[in-house]
Design a protein around this nucleic acid. Sequence first.
DNA 1: TATGATATTAGAAACGTTTCTATTACCTCT
DNA 2: AGAGGTAATAGAAACGTTTCTAATATCATA
Lengths: 335, 335
Amino acid sequence: MKKVTIKDVAKAAGVAISTTSNALNGSSLVNEETRKKILAVAKELNYVPNLNGRYLKTGKTKMLCFITSNVRGPYFYMLVESMCHECERLGYGMNLIVTKDKNVIMNHMVGQGFDGVFIYEGERIQEQELKIIDQSRVKTILLDRSYSSEFISSLVFDSYQAGFYVTRYLINLGHQRICFIEGADDVYDSIERKRGYIDALKAYDIPYDEDLIIRGYFEETYTYNSVTTMLRIENVALPDAFIAGNDLSAIGCMKALKALGYEIPKDVSVVGFDDIEVAEYLSPSLTTIRNPIDRQGVQAIELMMRMIHHNEKGRVEQLKGELIPRKSTGICLRK
Amino acid sequence: MKKVTIKDVAKAAGVAISTTSNALNGSSLVNEETRKKILAVAKELNYVPNLNGRYLKTGKTKMLCFITSNVRGPYFYMLVESMCHECERLGYGMNLIVTKDKNVIMNHMVGQGFDGVFIYEGERIQEQELKIIDQSRVKTILLDRSYSSEFISSLVFDSYQAGFYVTRYLINLGHQRICFIEGADDVYDSIERKRGYIDALKAYDIPYDEDLIIRGYFEETYTYNSVTTMLRIENVALPDAFIAGNDLSAIGCMKALKALGYEIPKDVSVVGFDDIEVAEYLSPSLTTIRNPIDRQGVQAIELMMRMIHHNEKGRVEQLKGELIPRKSTGICLRK
DNA sequence: TATGATATTAGAAACGTTTCTATTACCTCT
DNA sequence: AGAGGTAATAGAAACGTTTCTAATATCATA
């Protein structure tokens, strides 16, 4: 009942180990006759190569690693789905680490012998630590922030462009007083979307108004409270439209507006970012920007393969989003 | 810039490789003085053990594998989240394979040297193939069907009980004519839920009526059509309540009922199974059975560890669900 | 002062591959 | 017939560990 090794196959086929190895790996050195015999014997014995042996020798593990702090929501599963499929296709394994612990991350980066590592939601990873990662020479791709060094690439959505598009879309519908609900100060996506928002206003000569910037922290409840506070406590006049930092935030925003008695999109328009699953089922359904997540997945693997096999240096790549118009936005009806 | 190995550490510390290995692994053989020195040197050189070398020698990989055909939805992420956390805690890696291809599955089962494998949504895996898996002696846990053999365990929700509970709940609300919308014939969960439904009827002396069994295949659209057909084409009188095979099916059912002009729960009650994320956001919110998914995750790992370390034989374990009453069910108002 | 016993360290084999080098057998050419 | 080339195969080293066995030093005991 012992594991059958290449040695057993060699013996059973009456050839040397090296010949067996060559035959199994499709080397052109070995005679067609013997190859056939060896393959037959291997199959008959149910031989499966021991990967530890192989990888020890070759120095590769054919193992990638996906480190993430958050496994919930459509973003994650779409990403992981496309990445896993690509891995499978290319004969790579994909290890999954779910953690927020920076030590765990760093430990897995340098210690586990992965051929490459993807990091999503590593906002907490400091420049300092990226340096260490770079020194460890592990091929790394950041999926949620823009950075590059010798061994580190990133592949992010063009949140700036998304922010710009969405704002322009609202402006084209006639909206002028547009409120932006931002996330946290140090979150790449939030910063970039806001930058796009501001530049779009500028492009259409609409004055930027500090009072129309509030915080939502990408959360439903927080946004709900912020919007309510803005309109009821601070008595800011109802803006023409709200740009929420993401879809979750948009949900909170819509709930708050409804609770205050406003109708969407008659009285006010709302947009989000991400196009999460429920966006389409909300009432009204939510206008949002959809990111080509599956494309990010396969492109990330492609980039990784180039880094692994052709020693391509780290670089930054960007992906463009797509506006999905639904029922939460409409023409501005106010004079 | 070469990888530093145990040999380098040994040389730098001026001791033998074996001593180094022992020191690093906390063997009591080595003198406290030398251990300290070796650890210091190892740290100084940034030594990280090569896992392929170690695993080749020890025959273990400390690597588990999660094979699934479907990575979408809350069920998956809750499961994977809890499992990954447990793995991390125990020093195991978790490989993720997303595939529907049986050959891929079988290949990964026997070939990749995982210490253990979890399979979710392997409905297609036949008895025949389970035999092969068993012969490969890879410790395996099935997460979605009930089966056991020497090296195969399963850890499933008690769908029979869930079906029974839900039916009893409706009966207690006064419903008598209860329609059951089943999934596919060969799906474990569907079979068991229906069995629970039938037994609950029996327990309360309510006659089982063939006409009240329709198909939904766990899908929204299919269910929508089935319900519509039942009520409009076949002109079956509106049942008091519908038990949908899962929440998705319940959504289709509710849409169909609304489209036909019925009010939920005034005219008719609807329940589902799973408690998916949107269940709570539907209108009316959906009464359903929630399974303790995170518990399934940690319990699965526990079971796996027992199989790996204590060579526990394969077995079947079950988890109980919890009824979540919401607004889609109400007291039966019909005479 | 020999004699074990003990504590510590060193040496070497082994895990299962791949791959470099060596060997063999056969063939072609002069 | 011998030289040289080619095709096929065999042998052996190496990858980085762990672990078994051997060696050495120290020490208490008789």
